[in-house]
Design a protein around this nucleic acid. Structure first.
Length: 112
DNA sequence: ATCTTGACCTCTA
DNA sequence: CTAGAGGCCAAGA
């Protein structure tokens, strides 16, 4: 297994690693993750990674857009899951689909 | 192999 | 202030 086939470090794997390290009660943004990985405008790709992460055990509900809006709630099993989960963790909502980033903003650099 | 879509962000007019 | 376009990476048809 020393072939160039087991290299799982493109972008997907890295995004998942970061999202998996998001502590409860905290929220992060796509742009922050992308920027932390070295890609500033690759925020879209981050979402793609989560698209495959749904059901993989990743707390994708803790990832919101720059405005703190639960953009990806529609991709969940049920749009309600995302909101219910965040609320269950102690996250406060300033709007129907907007969380208080000023109170629960977590960054990849805050890990460890 | 090519084109389109996709859970985004940022800049410029 | 609002509106429009560009850029990034990956997967599906």
């Amino acid at each position: 297994m020393a072939d160039a086939s087991d290299d799982q470090d493109p972008f997907f794997e890295r995004v998942r690693a970061v999202v998996a390290q998001i502590p409860p009660g905290r929220v992060t943004t796509y742009g922050d993750i992308a920027e932390h990985l070295g890609r500033r405008g690759a925020a879209r790709t981050v979402g793609w990674a989560l698209n495959d992460a749904v059901g993989s055990g990743l707390p994708c509900h803790r990832v919101v857009n720059r405005n703190g809006v639960l953009t990806g709630k529609r991709h969940f099993e049920t749009p309600r899951v995302m909101e219910e989960r965040l609320r269950s963790e102690g996250v406060e909502f300033v709007d129907e689909d907007r969380v208080n980033l000023d109170e629960h903003w977590w960054t990849p650099s805050d890990a460890a």
